[in-house]
Each structure stands twice: as structure tokens, then as C-alpha cells.
């Protein structure tokens, strides 16, 4: 299963605010985004993240997997993560 490398200088606040110190870019993550990003920072892989979110949120697995893939693509597009 895919794991993710998050640059060590990136941190997300409790409000979901993310500041990239090397580019000055800022992003706002929603509640689900915060949960995913924090799990990625802890080194969780795709399966562990999906399992954790299914426990935390009332959502079916198919919808969650689709949303997760979309979110990962956005993070990669903005160079916020790399797939290990």
C-alpha cells in the first residue's frame, strides 16, 4: 500500500491552515483534509488512512476512496506530498 512523504517543514494548524515556508503559498484544508494530512505526517499508508477515516466518519468506503484519491492528487499537484 502507498505511503506518503510530507516535507518536514510543513505543518497544518488546528484550523486547517497550511503554510509552505519555501514558497509562501497558503492552503486551507477542511476537517477531512486535516485528518488525512495528519495521518500522512504520521507515516500511515493508504489502507491505514482509509480504515481510520471509516471509523471516524459516517461515510461509505467507495465515496471515501474517491474523495481520498482526489485529495491526494491535489496535494501532489501542489508539491505538498510525494508518494513513497
Amino acid at each position: 500500500m502507498t505511503a506518503f512523504a510530507v516535507p518536514s517543514n510543513l505543518a497544518v494548524s488546528e484550523n486547517g491552515f497550511l503554510f509552505v515556508p519555501t514558497s509562501g503559498e497558503t492552503f486551507t484544508l477542511n476537517k477531512l483534509g486535516i485528518s488525512i494530512f495528519k495521518l500522512m505526517q504520521k507515516g500511515a499508508d493508504t489502507e491505514e488512512i482509509i480504515d481510520a477515516l471509516l471509523e471516524e466518519y459516517d461515510i461509505d468506503k467507495t465515496t471515501l476512496e474517491k474523495d481520498f484519491t482526489d485529495f491526494v492528487n491535489q496535494l501532489k499537484h501542489h508539491n505538498l506530498i510525494e508518494e513513497k
Partner: peptide
């Protein structure tokens, strides 16, 4: 408006 940043 602008923000300080650092890229080596």
C-alpha cells in the same frame, strides 16, 4: 501585501 519565505 507579501509574506516572508525561505527557499535555499
Amino acid at each position: 501585501a507579501g509574506i516572508s519565505l525561505k527557499d535555499d
